[in-house]
Design a protein around this nucleic acid. Structure first.
Lengths: 222, 222, 222, 222
DNA sequence: CATGAATGAGGCTTCATTCAT
DNA sequence: CATGAATGAAGCCTCATTCAT
């Protein structure tokens, strides 16, 4: 039995229903674009609604306030990815160095090179004006990711691949280049008019090189 | 007999006059703090005035608009340093590698590790919402500094210390770590509550190492 | 059976929509009254809104700024009449003297003896403080009307009714009494408390008499 | 004995003294110019002070408020002339028609063709925003002048030169052209860029002609 | 559910007036 | 007396949020 058995006659009703279900997603997509482009404060809710093809009032049916809309965008674009990653880490069978490399490179592909990384940048630049938002980000995004990275590092330490460093501190060495790339990608320095600046992949590779070098256990007594 | 163990005898008469001279500086300091803390849009001029200990109206006696106040802060905290640096570059007698190292490390001391670097961060995050401000920053800050770095690189190329690379592109390799530190220092990630994160000096040193390595002329065919 | 003895059945549903259509007109009416009464600078937008029965913010939904509101008032109260007049001039079949008389007298009825003439007065008294507004008035009101008067005068010259005078200069002889009446009507001199002053119709008639006398072609050499 | 016997040696002291005496006059002159040029509301007291060569604070030593400054300007530029005129009327020996002609023409010379007429215009355009100012003008300027004109008219009626009209009403026929000229002179219509518009002397002459014609006693029964 | 008209708190800026020097 | 730095009330305008339809 084919999917969509109903002829187009019933469609108007179905279409509306589908639209209704799609609304939050369309609003989130529009909001993501605009927040990244203009920042939280400079983005007007009416613009978001317009870009999503609905009226201002409708937006407030789905999100009780601009701030909640922002949180929802963070949740969708950053938190949601977390589970995917977590599973991949658990299932990974190669070396921990490869796992770390894979993690960082795929972060670039799935988040960094995406609108989503704009939200990372935004949290670093506007969050302190909205304390509740900052706390939310810490709980929903920063800490889970940090935990994930710690798990990777611990895996390497346990297997003897990495030196027995303080994993909490070391997470910053992992996230620093990622955060920097997020900032870089979404800063005016990186605009088309500027001369081709930084190759993110190459940058990541070099940072990885340094990082893995630093994580290597020192076999010599010194 | 020490000079000025007591305030000058003319003080009662000059109090107001001295205030007037001090005002712009006090306002600029207050504005710098608040802009860095909350961003341009989220900072209210009345707050700046209050923190400087004057009323809203007084601020406008010294700066014709919020935007001009911002520009003045940029000028004081970033442009002003430029001439100092430029002279140092001219007078430097050591190797170009040392000059580059000195430049980057002293940037950290004089700007990076200071409120001033908050303005660098701000320009990268809010500038596009205020086109005139972006243009101003480009002219008054970005381009002069880029030129200075190019001069250093060219100096190394001319002396055979550095490979004959494209100096315009290479400036980005120099500024990237600096910009990253500016961002890092002024992001919530780096708050007191967060576990001690990144040692800027060490980070800079490692970036410098990579950078200088990359700049070294390849003498062997391979 | 009379049309529309009762409001349309759709009324309950259309109430808001009808408001929306009515708003610009209500705001324009309120603005006209207040601008005429107090001048442009002394009229506060909130007052206009209040008199129109809406809040401050609502006014800005319909007019993007106080200045645009003013222009819209000028357009409605002065420019709009122009086309009416222009058509009447084209269709007039009587003598040019009658046409001129008709034009001036009907100006009094339709503009001069109306709030609209207050805008004429305002332009003569406040325009120079608002250069853009002055230019707008010149383009949208003064020049079209001047052109219309020139057409009337030329018509009379072509038919031999009027002497072949410089029509551009002569327009001032036509507009001067009208402007005077506009000023008169809207000056405190003319307030109810002042003893009944000037009969505008009589004034216009006497000015017309002089004017037509001056326009008559001199047939005798002397 | 010559006036100003004191040699220049005493001047520094005298100069300051003289300056002090001259201050109000200089401020009034500056205020007159600016009020006429820009209107009451649009004139800033600081500008007035600057043009008079003193500081803002000094102005308030001589005039307790902007409004009082305005009144003082009205008093000096309009009321002051009244006594001169009054005496001339009393001393005049010619015909009443000549007296009226003389009065109107010399008004043009001494007031109309002067900055002072700008104040007349101003009262007609801004007074109602400042009720106290309007009342002041009525008492100090309008009524005295009206009385003077009535005396002239009565003189003509008494001598049989003029018909026994209602002198109160007739004053308006006298003042109307004068007020119109005051408005005309200080309106943008009359700016250099506009084509040479109205010859005030000729306008006055023609209005006088009409006026005197209207005042002539009708000798024929009808 | 969806709409979009309406609201009003809040931000920037001006300027008459005060007052310490 | 004179100064001019400082004040703060008041005006224009924006925009998140509400609510009648």
């Amino acid at each position: 039995m084919p999917i969509q058995t109903h002829p187009p006659t019933a469609e108007p009703q179905a279409k509306r229903a589908r639209r209704k279900e799609a609304r939050p997603g369309e609003l989130l997509a529009a909001a993501l674009d605009l927040f990244v482009e203009k920042g939280f404060a400079a983005t007007r809710v009416e613009e978001v609604a317009q870009r999503a093809g609905v009226s201002k009032g409708t937006l407030f049916l789905y999100f009780p306030s601009k701030e909640e809309l922002f949180k929802a965008v963070v949740r969708q674009s950053l938190s949601a990815r977390f589970f995917e990653w977590s599973a991949e880490v658990d299932d990974f069978t190669g070396s921990s160095a490869d796992l770390l490399r894979h993690g960082m490179l795929s972060w670039w592909e799935r988040v960094g090179d995406t609108q989503a990384s704009g939200m990372t940048k935004l949290m670093l630049t506007e969050a302190h004006n909205f304390p509740e938002m900052a706390a939310f980000y810490q709980t929903e995004v920063a800490l889970p990711y940090q935990g994930l990275i710690q798990r990777i590092l611990q895996r390497g330490i346990d297997s003897g691949e990495f030196a027995p460093i303080n994993t909490e501190l070391a997470t910053y060495s992992v996230t620093a280049p990622l955060i920097f790339l997020a900032m870089w990608k979404h800063s005016p320095v990186n605009h088309p008019c500027a001369p081709a600046a930084l190759d993110p992949q190459a940058y990541l590779a070099s940072q990885l090189h340094i990082l893995l070098n630093g994580l290597r256990p020192r076999t010599s007594p010194l």
